[in-house]
Design a protein around this nucleic acid. Structure first.
Length: 432
RNA sequence: UCCGGGAUAGCUCAGCUGGUAGAGCGGGCGGCUGUUAACCGCCGGGUCGCAGGUUCGAAUCCUGCUCCCGGAGCCA
């Protein structure tokens, strides 16, 4: 007799029926006459009850002697828990698929971060990590849908590049058939080329930074989505960022509320996310920081502490604009009304999370861009192709980059970005 | 690279001013209960990060090294 294979998330449709569940033994409790097995199948966890009075003695003993993370197929009848508002399975048949060869390393008790990261490949099985990665998957899906449904064409940038895109960050160097090559730190310059072909584009992929950063907001390998739009100015860029970010948050609230519940994320601050965001010019941001007791001077960049102070001050994201040109990369367009300022914007997520978006309007004037490359002492030859974009039909254009892991950390309410990516790459971690 | 903290049982940790190691959890065995990170009893389990030094004697004090954690800088 065949029994329908059912995922735990859809058990509600099978109450009273006999079904089959395939999964892993997550936890177990035993007594003389009854075993409680907690079976996880990736869609949820269900309590499987094995009663001595209902099954043959051999099956009862087998069910009580299974180690954690045994993979198994169970069959039985779906019924309501006698005391709790949940479903359970009354087992009548059990197939062990594979029994662990030794004790499962992750016990239901406490573990340190380093131990868990060493066992990241197993840690992913835990309820909390599953919740985080489901939110991440939802955000990635929402990003693609947002741009795909608004006429943006996905044009991915290369990961191996011949030179430093911006000339600022430290890059990972690799050997490319005898030639030096670098792992990309940003797809932006390539996205600009794509924008001149398609008008609205975005690239979405991994990026790499070799700086020896060891903070809760840094990874050596992280994912970034970078929209780039022709005939768009800074104002349009900010409006796009506002609408985009609002959309992402709403999507997670709509579809991943249960996961946010697992993470004990207070959703009230997320429900307040809607345009318009708070706008601050660089000097206004400095003023607020000084009032808050931060010793910042004109010309200072805003570091982690400063971002935290600013983003804790408002209940909506903060957009900081018009930084001094000296702080920004060569490709930013200067503000025509004050050429010492860049037409740039950073979006700081609230609740102390800080920068999740950085972008702005690009320099579209050939002579100005040539001068900027020279002023930054960048190798001109490597940028000839980029200069071509200004030689042939240059137009005002703008874009930004959103860091996926920081966004996931913020929306999930996490303290550290390392849990927001399946297998983090950090200063002291290349494995598993 | 800088500042701070750390490395003791499978895991999380205790071990004060030197006298050759303990607890909880996990595991094994037994008991008990429609159990909820269940509970009770018993059991095994350690080159105290590495290398030197001081001392009758070092997990403990000193020096060097390695590795890790938190933060800074840099940035998404």
């Amino acid at each position: 007799m065949t029994v329908p294979r059912v995922r735990i998330e859809s058990l509600e449709r099978h109450v009273g029926q006999r079904v089959e569940i395939a999964g892993w033994l997550q936890h177990a409790r035993s007594s003389k006459h009854v075993h409680f097995l907690y079976v996880r199948d990736g869609s949820g966890v269900v309590q499987v009850v094995v009663a001595a009075s209902d099954v043959p003695p051999a099956l009862f003993d087998q069910a009580g002697g299974l180690p954690l993370e045994t993979s198994l197929v169970v069959r039985g009848t779906v019924r309501r828990h006698p005391r709790r508002d949940e479903l359970e399975l009354g087992l009548d048949e059990l197939d062990v698929v594979s029994r662990p060869v030794r004790e499962y390393p992750i016990s239901p008790k406490e573990h340190g971060v380093d131990f868990l990261m060493d066992h990241r490949h197993l840690w992913l099985r835990s309820r909390r990590q599953q919740a985080i990665l489901r939110v991440r998957a939802e955000i990635v899906s929402a990003i693609r849908e947002y741009f795909d449904s608004r006429g943006f064409v996905l044009v991915d940038a290369p990961i191996l590049t011949p030179n430093a895109c911006e000339g600022t960050s430290t890059l990972f160097e690799t050997d490319y058939h005898g030639q030096k090559a670098y792992l990309t730190q940003s797809g932006q310059l390539y996205a600009e080329a794509a924008a001149m072909a398609f008008g609205r584009t975005y690239c979405f992929g991994p990026t790499f930074r070799a700086e020896k950063s060891k903070t809760r907001r840094h990874l050596a390998e992280f994912w970034m989505v970078e929209p780039e739009v022709a005939f768009m100015d800074l104002e349009g860029d900010i409006a796009l960022a506002e609408d985009f970010l609002t959309n992402l948050v709403a999507r997670v609230l709509d579809r991943r509320r249960a996961e946010l519940g697992v993470l004990e994320r207070d959703v009230a601050p997320l429900e307040r996310i809607r345009p318009p965001f708070v706008r601050l010019r660089y000097e206004q941001a400095l003023e607020i920081l000084r009032e808050a007791g931060q010793p910042v001077r004109f010309g200072d960049d805003l570091g982690g502490d400063e971002e935290t102070v600013l983003s804790q001050r408002f209940d909506r994201p903060v957009v900081v604009t018009h930084y001094p040109m000296s702080l920004k990369a060569f490709y930013f367009k200067r503000d025509p009304s004050d050429p010492s300022r860049a037409l740039n914007m950073d979006v700081l997520a609230p609740e102390g999370y800080g920068e999740v978006i950085g972008g702005g309007q690009r320099e579209d004037d050939l002579a100005a861009l040539e001068a900027a490359i020279e002023a930054h002492r960048l190798p001109r030859a490597a940028f000839e192709w980029y200069l071509d974009l200004r030689r042939y039909g240059s137009v005002p254009h703008a874009g930004f980059g959103l860091g996926v892991e920081r966004t996931v950390a913020w929306i999930c309410g996490l303290h550290h970005v390392r849990e927001t990516i399946p297998f983090p790459r950090m200063l002291h971690r290349l494995a598993p």
